[in-house]
């Protein structure tokens, strides 16, 4: 498995396997030998097993794997929500330090996540204005004049095709699933993180809304240069949006590279099976293999 062995990563060229990788750009997040074990002894379960990853600024990557392969566990470690058993994470060339609460807060300004179930990610007692206001405050905008804050919130809402006037004074649960998903992107618009991690962001929504959401996320990436990590079962999505794809099986990356290599010309049997199992429309979908 080729990876870049230079954790400080000023020069991604060379042994980097990725085709349309933004050559010469800066390494954003680098992961070395990251491992997570749950349980002990005979109960021991290695959910993530010595994973290496180099992500560049502005890059879109997907982590694909079947249920239980360790995707969510990996993303929780990247987010700093759980500790790793082994291995290191480097952010912008420096070893990540989240040993204190304030350091964690600092890190979370740089990395944000959106989850599969948009309803689970809001505090049900907070109105939508408060949700958005929080984002402004988190970016150090607490002292800004009220009018400026409203202007920013209005801009964020219109970025995702929501009307700010219709959002004020509502609770998140008064929104439809699609509106909720877009509100999450409005938050990201205000937070402007360096990295956005999206765990199955589109699996609950229909193809048409998925296209809208992808459009918005890509526009946001273009504007802010953030790195986007998709965690997904959706190989079509991974193929369509990514610069790099990582295929995860039992906690390990078994194959990675550009989507054209990995998804159109897979080498590993596991990757072949996953791709084979996705419904096709231009080719015959072979049902005899399950």
């Amino acid at each position: 498995m080729p990876t870049n062995n230079d954790p400080v990563g000023n020069n991604p060229v060379g042994n980097n396997p990725v085709g349309n990788n933004p050559v010469g750009k800066k390494l954003c997040l680098s992961v070395k030998g990251l491992t997570k074990e749950f349980g002990f002894g005979r109960q021991k379960n290695v959910a993530v097993n010595k994973v290496d990853m180099d992500l560049y600024e502005g890059e879109v990557v997907s982590i694909v794997g079947e249920s239980g392969s360790g995707k969510t566990t990996l993303s929780k470690m990247l987010l700093g929500l759980i500790n790793s058993t082994e291995g290191d994470i480097y952010f912008q060339g420096k070893k990540r330090d989240i040993s204190s609460y304030s350091k964690k807060q600092e890190y979370w300004k740089n990395i944000q996540a959106i989850f599969q179930d948009p309803f689970s990610s809001y505090n049900i007692f907070n109105k939508i204005d408060a949700v958005l206001l929080d984002c402004i405050n988190m970016r150090g905008g607490r002292r800004l004049p009220q009018a400026k804050k409203v202007e920013m919130m209005t801009e964020a809402c219109s970025f995702v095709n929501l009307k700010y006037e219709e959002m004020t004074n509502k609770y998140p649960f008064e929104l439809s699933g699609g509106q909720m998903q877009r509100l999450m992107i409005a938050r990201i618009f205000l937070l402007k993180p360096k990295i956005l991690l999206a765990d199955e962001p589109t699996s609950m929504i229909d193809a048409c809304s998925r296209a809208t959401i992808l459009d918005m996320l890509m526009k946001l990436r273009d504007e802010t240069g953030m790195t986007l990590i998709f965690i997904t079962h959706d190989i079509g999505l991974a193929y369509y949006v990514s610069d790099q794809v990582f295929i995860m099986e039992h906690g390990k990356f078994v194959e990675s590279g550009s989507p054209d290599d990995v998804i159109l010309h897979p080498r590993e049997p596991y990757t072949k099976r996953l791709i084979n199992d996705v419904p096709k429309i231009y080719e015959e979908w072979d049902l005899t293999t399950v």
Binding site: C208, R210, D215, I235, G236, Y239, Y240, L264, P279
Partner: peptide
């Protein structure tokens, strides 16, 4: 126009998002 499948050529196609 918003279907995505992992089949060759798709990366070049622009998805249609209905506004």
């Amino acid at each position: 126009g918003s279907i995505i499948v992992p089949e060759a050529g798709l990366r070049g196609v622009k998805l249609t998002a209905i506004p």
